[in-house]
Structures are given as structure tokens and as C-alpha cells.
């Protein structure tokens, strides 16, 4: 029975139940994007929807159908009503598959989250593409931009085949992704963000390309709450560099300060680029993440 259930699963990343629930969700972006194609997101222009957006001064050439005559009667000046324009969003999902993501199921969790967000995008008639970066100086693997429910299995297969390992930095992965990406929309970077250097530049690169920047930081339990003590030699899983630490147990408090500081910085970077930020524990249940935390934090609606 369990084997049969396993065989009937659409993807090995999560169960069909989860999939069914994800299909009913939609990612909640905070601003409107313009795009030549039509999607299911609201745009800020006299568009084809019934949703009033704003007033502006009448200029010669405007369609008189959109003049608000009540306002004219009161103010003796013509104003044009604006309605939201439904446009299609390009959802880019960037997965960090470097060596640091191989600890404590972080990569698996990242794949699950990306899979869920891609399902949300596909089921909301958005264009979805997935990029994965791991090995430096090698080509970033990416899926072709897909739309519609029929592309789900293709994306799932792409995700399932992603292999972790490598030392590519987030910035390098972003650059490689932007070489292949066209269009504006939202980008969700799923990584542990344990990367040297300033992420501001990386975020700016994304934002300047018209992408709303969302960040999901996936960390393992030992990264969230390290249990270390004594004199240790830490070895970086990506670079194999070492760092000798004495009295590691006494430094955990300081480590926490820096980790929370990084979270705040990432949150600020994302928020300033019209996005959101979320830190997840790779060991926490997927259902809790998708249907509870992401809902409560406004990541998804539905």
C-alpha cells in the first residue's frame, strides 16, 4: 500500500496531498509589474479590470469614458479614473545547490519550497523558471520558462535531478541566472546565504532587472543553534578552509548575535526591494512551513 502510494506520487519532493493544497495557493507579491503578456497580477494603469486604482488629471487624448463626472461636478475640473491592469508575472526561482546546502537536508528542503512555489506560479498562469547554481565557473543549470499546469512535471523533474556540491557563491549564481533571464517579475532566492561579501550588490542586480526580490534562508538546526564546546578546528565544506576556535562554547552567544544580524540585514534588503524574507529550519515540517508560516507571514494567499 505504501509502495503503491509512493508510486502514484507526482513528485518525490512532497506528497500528493501537499501538492493538492499548494495548487490552491498563490504567491503574494507586494507591487505591480508591467509586462507585455497578460497574467493574473494587477497592474497600475487603465486596464481591463474593474478594480479602481487611482485618479489622475485629464490630458488631451484620454478616453472620456474614464472621466469621473461626479468629481467634475464637485471640483469643476476633469479627473480620469485608473483601473488595475491584469498582467502576467515571471516568477524566477533560484536554488543554491552548493556544498553548504548539503547539510542537514537543506537542499532537499530548498527543492521542496521551490517546487511548491513553482506550482503556485504555474497554477496562477505565471511564467516560471528555475535556476540552480552549485559549481563555480561552470554553467548554471536552469529550466526553460514554463507556463501552465502541464509544465509541472517538467519542473519537478528538473528539481529532482539537481545535485548538490560546489563552491559557487550566490552572487555568481545570480549573475549566471540574469544572463538567461528575460522579463520582469519576482525572484525567489532559496539559499543559506552563508556567503562572503556584500549581498547588497546581488540584490540590486536583481531589482534593477525589474525583479521583486524574495529570499528564503534555509538553515540546519546546528546552524541555528550550534552545540559546540572546547577547542575546535572548523572546516568550511565548500572551500576546505579552516578556522581554529578556542572555547567555542563560550562564543555561541556571539555567533547568535551575528546570525540574527544577518537575518535582519537580509530582511531589510528584501523589503527594500519590494520583497519578503523568511528563515526556515530545514528540519521543520514542510506542511507547517507552507500552510502556516508562509501564510501568516504573507508570503502566500489562498
Amino acid at each position: 500500500m505504501a509502495v503503491e502510494a509512493e508510486r502514484s506520487r507526482v513528485t518525490s519532493l512532497f506528497s500528493n496531498d501537499v501538492l493538492a493544497r499548494v495548487e490552491r495557493l498563490r504567491m503574494n507579491t507586494s507591487r505591480r509589474f508591467t509586462n507585455r503578456s497578460s497574467g493574473e497580477h494587477l497592474a497600475g494603469r487603465a486596464g481591463s479590470s474593474n478594480e479602481f486604482a487611482d485618479y489622475r488629471n485629464y490630458v488631451v487624448g484620454d478616453d472620456l469614458r474614464y472621466v469621473d463626472w461626479n468629481v467634475f461636478a464637485r471640483l469643476r475640473r476633469p479627473y480620469v479614473k485608473l483601473y488595475h491592469h491584469e498582467e502576467q508575472m515571471h516568477l524566477v526561482l533560484l536554488v543554491d545547490a552548493s556544498s553548504s546546502m548539503l547539510f542537514e537536508g537543506k537542499l532537499q528542503r530548498a527543492k521542496q519550497l521551490v517546487a511548491a512555489l513553482s506550482v503556485m506560479g504555474l497554477f496562477n498562469n505565471e511564467r516560471v523558471s528555475i535556476h540552480a547554481f552549485n559549481q563555480a565557473n561552470s554553467a548554471t543549470s536552469h529550466s526553460r520558462p514554463c507556463r501552465g499546469r502541464g509544465s509541472m512535471r517538467e519542473l519537478f523533474r528538473f528539481l529532482e535531478e539537481i545535485e548538490g556540491g560546489g563552491d559557487e557563491l550566490v552572487e555568481q549564481g545570480v549573475r549566471a541566472m540574469l544572463k538567461h533571464h528575460r522579463g520582469r517579475g519576482a525572484v525567489v532566492v532559496v539559499s543559506d546565504f552563508l556567503t562572503p561579501g556584500d549581498l547588497r550588490r546581488t540584490m540590486n542586480m536583481l531589482y534593477s532587472r525589474g525583479l521583486e526580490v524574495f529570499g528564503i534562508q534555509v538553515l540546519g538546526p546546528t546552524e541555528i543553534d550550534p552545540e559546540v564546546s572546547g577547542d575546535l578546528r572548523f572546516v568550511d565544506s565548500e572551500t576546505n578552509e579552516t578556522l581554529d576556535v578556542s572555547g567555542a562554547g563560550d562564543l555561541v552567544g556571539l555567533y547568535q548575535q551575528y546570525r540574527l544580524g544577518m537575518e535582519r540585514e537580509l530582511e531589510q534588503l528584501c523589503r527594500q526591494r519590494m520583497g519578503r524574507y523568511l528563515m526556515v529550519d530545514a528540519q521543520s515540517p514542510l506542511e507547517t512551513l507552507l500552510f502556516d508560516r508562509m501564510r501568516r507571514t504573507g508570503w502566500v494567499v489562498g
Partner: peptide, 16 residues
Amino acid sequence: RPRMTIPSLVLWRQVM
């Protein structure tokens, strides 16, 4: 010192 492989030294370097 016991060797301990961790995902990244980024945070620990900041600490040190």
C-alpha cells in the same frame, strides 16, 4: 583540535 566540518565559516569568521 577536533575537526568539525560545517557548512560555512562565514559567521564564525565574523565572530572571531
